[in-house]
Design a binder for these strands. Structure first.
Lengths: 336, 336
DNA sequence: CATAATGATGCACACGTTAACAACGAACTT
DNA sequence: AAGTTCGTTGTTAACGTGTGCATCATTATG
């Protein structure tokens, strides 16, 4: 069996309380005793039982990182950047538990005792019950990526709508008028925000909308390919396509290339997210930078401060999205 | 405060023992009492304190998924496929704790009490101390992806060497003789295995090796770009390049395209891994399929069976890698 | 009818840790 | 010299749950 503070206590001829205090660096203990006990603990390779600690201290040392789903709609890069950002902040002070919300049959195991804090990387309104559940139980909580309306909660989100506006505005500035959109996964909040940005830009510059130019997608590569294939059959076909994320843009480019057409000469493509891969595509993708790693890093830092200070703030913070111009758009305004 | 079995006991006029047994579906309890208690528990929204359970049952309900690092050398897709594979198997029976081994300052927190089992997604020999630490403490353990020699442990790995052999053999069959290699991260086992596969194929078909055609890389996009840039300055430059993973292949293609050259007409490129992105690149990448999601799924299943049956097997299982032919290689054998 | 077997429940302790309070000797105060 | 303070250590209970054993009522057995 493993060694406990009582074992150490026996060998040191002190009570287990003294051992506990020595190992927790309590000022009550004589420095010499402290040193003796620590040496002993090291020799015996003592490791504390965190379950016992947790029980009495009412802290779990666990942080939850929850995604809407780990199955479809969560891109590899999104997951990667989120985990990396959070992990950079917490280092080895907490355990990071990763899970898809839709894997839960019941939220049974989600409570204050099991999680010191929770980060929800939210994409869909389907997360709402989960968020409310956690909020009701007063678990320190941060919701990232998706803007929340009803619940009072700390919320950090990229300005998707503005980003979409910017990139569509850019297409218009390059002379495009037949601008299609390949949309994200239905009932994802980001889908809606990006669609709104697209429409507002079109309206502001008085570019007519065409229903056929609006194609559904679900954020993955295949759906971008399929949607673009449909767009290519239209007459007249669009001169530019706004893909609601970079994965779908990649799928769209493939569909175009297979038809012996060239991006951007024949059709211009823009994406959204600015993946680590986006700058390396052929052609390099013009897109919108959404600082997910930064958001998750700052979200994690905020969460830790909530836990440590026991004060929670509740506000919505927007992170700027910015246009990244590369090589996937051509100017067709004819000289201007 | 949260409700405990003692609270339920009071309300039901029974002892907490009875409540405990009722909720654990013990056959000792009268069905009616059982039903009454369960109803009460549901009404009070009782959730067990898993720390207390863990303490007395000596189970943590935690599974660790450890990567060599989360910083550099672990591609987004690799992380994604591993998490997805494992998560699919464990569902909500366990908590999945994700961490980079190099984040640990000490392995203090890694022990039987904290982890019911551990999956190491190993890439580097630097993981060796960690693996041995876990093995010594008799934590149910599975090591995936990298072949382990010294320690007796359950080991599941893709056949990297054979995969590399196959893809280089394919290049040779297409008439290539000036075949370069962009290598993976130094001291990653996979780097070594893929290099060996390359060399064996070259030797078997008696294609001369050229030292300049061997360029270092570290598995990320930028290093592929940089290595390819160096290769392009050589005279004669290679007609084909084996990039040790798909990310570097993408970087290499960018370097080539920027020099106004075309893949595969001017230079053929092959990769390794078969990312979800690889088929969607321009051109679609010829590569080697390494079934990471399958490996992590089967690894997780094996680990669960170890935990449940308390029997551990120790063997090395190889998973077949296979050639995936797409459009990034041209035949230069001149008609044959 | 006395006794044994059975079914259902409670008592008391254990898991490993922390913390409030008590205890005790030594040093300091007046 | 008696009382007070301080520094150090020990005693004991607590956190919430599970389990071996004892207990008690009820039913079956002879």
């Amino acid at each position: 069996m493993s060694v406990t503070i009582k074992d150490i206590a026996k060998l040191a001829n002190v009570s287990h309380t003294t051992v506990s205090r020595a190992l927790n660096d309590s000022p009550l203990i004589n420095p010499e005793t402290k040193e003796k006990i620590r040496l002993l603990a090291a020799q015996l390779q003592y490791t504390p039982n965190y379950n016992a600690k947790s029980l009495v201290l009412d802290r779990s040392y666990n942080l939850g990182l929850f995604f809407s789903t780990l199955h479809t709609g969560t891109s590899a890069v999104f997951l990667y950047e989120a985990i990396k950002g959070v992990n950079d902040v917490i280092q080895d002070r907490y355990n990071l538990i990763v899970r898809g919300i839709d894997d839960y049959t019941s939220f049974h195991k989600v409570n204050r005792k099991s999680y010191d804090g929770i980060i929800v990387m939210s994409q869909s309104e389907a997360d709402q019950p989960f968020i409310e559940y956690a909020a009701e139980r007063e678990i320190p909580l941060i919701v990232l990526n998706r803007q929340i309306e009803n619940v009072q909660v700390m919320n950090m989100v990229p300005d998707d709508k503005r980003g979409a506006y910017l990139v569509v505005e850019y297409l218009i500035s390059q002379g495009h008028r037949q601008i299609a959109i390949i949309e994200g996964k239905e009932n994802f909040k980001s889908t809606q925000a990006r669609r709104e940005g697209y429409r507002e830009a079109m309206e502001f510059y008085q570019v007519p909308l065409c229903v056929d130019y609006s194609q559904p997608g679900n954020y993955d590569l295949e759906s971008g390919y399929a949607a673009m294939t449909r767009l290519l059959q239209l007459n007249p076909r669009p001169t530019a396509v706004f893909c609601c994320n970079d994965d779908m843009a990649l799928g769209a480019i493939k569909a175009i290339t297979e038809k012996q057409l060239i991006v951007p000469q024949d059709i211009s493509i823009v994406g959204f997210d600015d993946h680590i891969y986006s700058g390396f595509m052929t052609p390099a993708l013009t897109t919108v930078r959404r600082p997910m790693e930064q958001i998750s890093r700052e979200g994690a830092a905020k969460l830790l401060s909530f836990i440590e200070t026991k004060k929670v703030e509740k506000e919505t913070i927007f992170f700027h999205t910015e246009l990244v111009i590369r090589d996937s758009v051509t100017n067709i305004s004819g000289g201007l």
